[in-house]
């Protein structure tokens, strides 16, 4: 197996690798930088001495955060919100995608329904109607305000619908012949066969819930109920605020909290980073290849 590579081919491989490594590095550097800052002393961080390696290594900022009630509390909110939101989203995505993946002759109003969903991607009511709807339905200031308004992620439904349509019709028909109903077909055949798309959509949903901060800010009335991203957003946004009012001199001090901020960002991002490798193995194509012999 000693294949002689041509020069141009070798050159391509070298350049290709260099390019991809460079690309990966640009994604990694900011993360490593934040990590280095979080382990550095405040003096070093505020004078911009920290690049990719901690200066004056210390755990002080992590200690500081783990004793911080607000951080822990919003972490809890996120830990509640993400699984709950994930479950609701995934259930509704699958349930919407299945009927919509059928042909017009099987499901007469399919196109109407499809447009009904797609319209919500194209047009939105805007901030105030959104807020008023949540308010009048009594969801405001409850955990459900973060889950119900976005319960059907239409984009994900379309992704899944298209995947369902790509599954060979014959499998489904043979199941019907054997006496299976729609529920059986959906849960026993479609879902197990759609692991790649389910993994993708799961990732979108998890990351989406983990990172969503704006809804928490607007729909929650008290900071105690903010999810982690909202809390982090405020920590980071706050520091660059230049609004000067004589009453808030002390806010300036927040600027030197650079290390603590970095540690919080890192701790906030860590759990969701860990999800990626576990979903990796499902991103395999061609699972249904060879299931139909004709």
């Amino acid at each position: 197996m000693n294949i002689q590579l041509s020069w141009s081919r070798r050159l391509f491989i070298v350049i290709n690798y260099a390019f991809l490594i460079g690309l990966a590095a640009t994604c990694l550097f900011p993360l490593i930088h934040v990590l280095a800052i979080s382990f550095s002393s405040s003096t070093a961080a505020t004078s911009g001495m920290v690049k990719l390696w901690p200066v004056d290594f210390t755990f002080a900022s992590y200690e500081f955060i783990l004793h911080k009630k607000e951080f822990i509390r919003s972490f809890e909110v996120t830990l509640l919100r993400t699984p709950l939101g994930f479950a609701v989203n995934m259930l509704l995505t699958v349930l919407c995608a299945y009927p919509l993946s059928k042909e017009q002759r099987e499901f007469r109003l399919r196109t109407t329904y499809a447009w009904y969903f797609i319209l919500t991607i194209l047009f939105s009511g805007g901030l105030i109607p959104w807020y008023m709807t949540v308010k009048t339905t009594g969801l405001l200031n409850t955990i459900w305000a973060l889950i119900i308004p976005g319960a059907v992620p239409v984009f994900n439904v379309i992704l899944m619908l298209n995947f369902f349509r790509g599954l060979p019709k014959d499998i489904e028909e043979s199941a019907f012949l054997d006496g299976a109903g729609h529920w059986t077909v959906l849960w026993r055949m479609y879902v197990p066969l759609s692991l790649p798309v389910i993994a993708t959509v799961s990732l979108f949903t998890l990351v989406g819930h983990w990172n969503a901060w704006f809804d928490g800010l607007v729909l929650m009335n008290f900071p105690e109920k903010y999810p982690l991203s909202t809390y982090l957003q405020l920590m980071v946004a706050n520091s660059s605020s230049l609004n000067f009012s004589g009453q808030s001199l002390f806010e300036l001090i927040a600027v030197s909290q650079r290390t603590a901020r970095a540690a919080q960002i890192f701790l906030g991002a860590l759990p969701i980073l860990l999800v990626y490798p576990f979903l990796q193995k499902y991103f395999v194509k061609g699972i249904v290849l060879g299931s139909v012999k004709s």
Binding site: N141, L217, V218, N221, F222, P223, L234, A237, N238, S241, N243, S248
Partner: peptide, 12 residues
């Protein structure tokens, strides 16, 4: 209090 919010987001 009907609601309490961070100062950067108060106006919104």
């Amino acid at each position: 209090y009907l609601w309490v919010v961070d100062n950067t987001q108060f106006e919104q």
